[in-house]
Amino acid sequence: MGDMIKMVVVLTVLSAFSGGLLAAIRDNTKEQIEVQQLTFVKGPAIREIFKDAGNDPISDRFKLQYGDEERSFFVGVYDGNPKGVALETYGKGYGGDVGLMVGIDTETDKIIGVSVTTHAETPGLGARAKEDPEFSGQFEGLSLTDTIAVTKDGGQVNSISGATITSRAVANAAQKASDIYKRLKPEIIENAKSIAK
């Protein structure tokens, strides 16, 4: 019996200590990690989506409140017209959250392009969502009035073979971006205009 209690106590104390240490480190590195992700992952993704834009979409950004969260929006200016807006959303993948940067044309309400940012999917299977331009290319020009889903769920996006869960995560993330955009559209357009001036 005493043995049992000792086991429980040791494991509990060790786990609690570990949790506390990790929480502290996470809090301290959070901002730095965001900066790094913006430089190395989100930055290239945004530039890829707004490749024809005349401004620097990474510095031209604003934040809006959606639900309890604050979200960043990146603006792409085309010939002086700030019609491109990109935002990042997440879908539940096979190895955790799959981040997706979604660029939207505010004049036509269509997707300009998408690009997978952070993920922990299986190399060679789910990870192809980031590497295969054919997959992400399918999202180009999709209208936000339709529901975005993979063909297995009755949608218009062909899944990557062997990676249905990842494909679904990307489609869900795109749909989430569409929902957020539709809810906040007036504010987004207003903010984008004031940035382009």
């Binding site: 494991l11 060790l14 786990s15 570990s18 240490l21 990790l22 480190i25 996470r26 590195t29 730095q32 990690i33 790094q36 992700q37 430089t39 190395f40 992952v41």
Partner: peptide, 19 residues
């Protein structure tokens, strides 16, 4: 538990300083 804790530390620190 001990090993996993330190691995997560490495992961976080590497993300922050050697992305």
């Amino acid at each position: 538990i001990v090993i996993a804790t330190f691995v997560t530390v490495v992961e976080l620190v590497m993300q922050a300083y050697a992305y």
